[in-house]
Simulated scan of single mutants.
Amino acid sequence: MPENTSWIPLFPLNTVLFPGGVLPLKVFETRYLDMLRECMKNQQPFGVVLIKSGAEVGAAAEPEEIGCLTHIVEWDMQDLGVLMLRVEGSQRFRILQQRVLADQRLEAQISLIADDLPGAPDQVHLLCASTLKLVIDDIQNKGRASHGAEYASPFSLPLQFDSASWVANRWCEILPIPLKARQKLLELTDGRERLAIVHQYLLQHHII
C-alpha cells in the first residue's frame, strides 16, 4: 500500500463516504473554508473521515482510522461565507499519523488502500445489482419529477452495475444502517465480502 508522506487535510463528519459516492457539503466554518480554498487552489484532495468522538464544530474531533479521499466536482458560493460543494469519493486510506493545527483543523499522513479487485459477476452480484438499478431508477425518477431541471443526481456517472464493489458501496450508502456499521463495511478489504453482507441484509429485510 503506497504511503503519502505529505500531510493531507481531513474533514471529520458524521457521515461515511465510499469510493464512487457523491457527498453534498454546506461549509461555513472559517477553518474549513480556508482548507477547501487551499485544496481548490492546489488541486489537492482531502479526506472525509467519520467522527469517532467529538463534534463537527468546535475543537478538532477524533476521527476513525480509515476514510475516503475526495475530489471536488462542483462548487458555488451564492451567499458570502457559505460554500456549497459536491464532492466524490475516490480511494480509501488509513491514517498513519495525524496532527491538529492551531485553528483546530486536522491533517494526516496516510497509506492508500488498494481498490477491490474486479471479478466476474456471480448470482449474488447480479441479484443485488438488478435490485439496486430499480432503486436508483426510482430515486432518479422521483427527483426529476420533484425538481425538474434543477435536479442533481446523488449518483455519479457512469453507473457501474457490473462492479461488485460499486454495487456494494451504493447499497451501503442507501440502506438505513447505523454509521458504525457503515464504517465497518468501508473497512472491509474485499468488495465481495461487503456485497455478501449487503445481500444478507436485503434477504433478511425482504428487499429481494
Rank of each mutant, 00 (worst) to 15 (best):
L85G: 11
D103E: 09
V87H: 07
S153D: 03
D115S: 09
V73E: 06
R105E: 01
A120Q: 14
G119Q: 14
M77P: 12
T131D: 01
A60M: 00
E74V: 09
L126K: 14
V82D: 01
Y151C: 02
D79I: 15
D116L: 05
T70R: 05
Q97G: 05
E62Y: 09
A60N: 01
S130V: 08
P118L: 05
M77H: 12
V87G: 07
I72E: 01
R99K: 15
G89Q: 11
V73M: 10
G119T: 06
T131V: 04
D138W: 00
L132C: 11
R86L: 09
I66F: 10
S90F: 06
I139K: 04
L126G: 06
H125G: 04
L132H: 02
D103C: 05
T70N: 09
V124M: 06
I110K: 03
L132D: 05
H125N: 07
M77C: 13
R99H: 02
L134N: 11
Y151V: 00
H125R: 05
A108Y: 01
M84F: 09
H71K: 11
Q78K: 15
I139V: 07
C128D: 06
V135D: 06
R92K: 13
V100D: 02
V135C: 12
P63A: 13
N141Q: 12
Q104V: 10
R99V: 01
D122G: 06
H71T: 15
R105H: 05
H147G: 03
I139P: 02
V87M: 07
G89S: 08
A102L: 12
Q97F: 04
R99N: 01
N141F: 08
V73S: 13
V73D: 08
A60L: 00
A108Q: 00
T70S: 12
D137S: 02
D76M: 12
A149Q: 15
L83W: 12
C68R: 13
A145W: 03
S111W: 07
D116V: 02
D115A: 14
E150P: 04
M84S: 12
A120W: 07
E107Y: 07
P63L: 10
C68Q: 05
Q98D: 08
